[in-house]
Computed example of a mutant assay.
Amino acid sequence: MPRYDFRCRACGATFEVNRPMTEAGRPASCPDGHDDTVKLLSTVAVTGRVGGAPAPSGGGGCCGGSCGCG
């Protein structure tokens, strides 16, 4: 189940809520009972193997092995 991050505007607390994607836009109350919250944008880090293939190495960016800087 996806996890969504929220921040309370009243007390400044940040907290997480687990809920189905169909309820992603629903507001959430903070653990202290305040209703003035905002949903935060979350980042997802994906590492490791995809479909059993090794993660790509090198790359096309600077210091990826092809520009001679590293």
Rank of each mutant, 00 (worst) to 15 (best):
P2A: 03
P2W: 06
R3L: 10
Y4Q: 03
D5S: 14
D5P: 00
D5L: 12
F6D: 03
F6E: 01
F6S: 01
F6P: 00
R7I: 14
C8P: 03
C8A: 05
C8E: 04
C8T: 02
R9N: 14
R9F: 04
R9S: 08
A10P: 00
A10H: 05
A10T: 15
C11P: 01
C11L: 07
C11M: 11
G12P: 00
A13G: 02
A13F: 04
A13V: 15
T14N: 13
F15I: 05
V17L: 09
V17P: 02
N18P: 05
N18E: 15
R19E: 03
R19K: 13
P20G: 06
T22N: 04
T22R: 12
T22Q: 09
E23A: 15
E23Y: 02
E23F: 02
A24M: 06
A24S: 09
A24V: 10
G25F: 07
R26G: 01
P27S: 05
A28D: 04
A28P: 00
S29W: 02
S29C: 13
S29A: 15
S29N: 13
S29R: 13
C30V: 05
C30S: 07
P31C: 10
P31S: 07
D32A: 15
D32C: 07
G33I: 10
G33V: 08
D35Y: 04
D36I: 05
D36S: 14
D36H: 11
T37I: 06
T37Q: 00
K39L: 14
L40M: 14
L41H: 04
L41I: 11
V44G: 01
V44P: 00
V46A: 14
V46P: 00
T47K: 05
T47V: 15
T47D: 12
R49P: 00
V50Q: 12
V50T: 14
G51T: 06
G51I: 07
G51R: 03
G51D: 10
G52Q: 05
A53T: 10
A53Y: 05
A53H: 10
A53I: 10
P54I: 07
P54L: 13
P54C: 05
P54V: 07
P56M: 08
P56E: 11
S57V: 15
G58S: 09
G59M: 06
G59C: 09
G60V: 14
C62Y: 11
C62D: 14
C62M: 12
C63Q: 13
C63W: 02
C63A: 13
C63S: 12
G64S: 03
G64Q: 04
G65I: 13
G65N: 06
S66A: 13
S66Y: 03
S66E: 12
C67E: 08
C67I: 04
C67P: 01
C69L: 10
C69Y: 06
G70R: 10
G70M: 11
G70P: 01
G70Q: 06
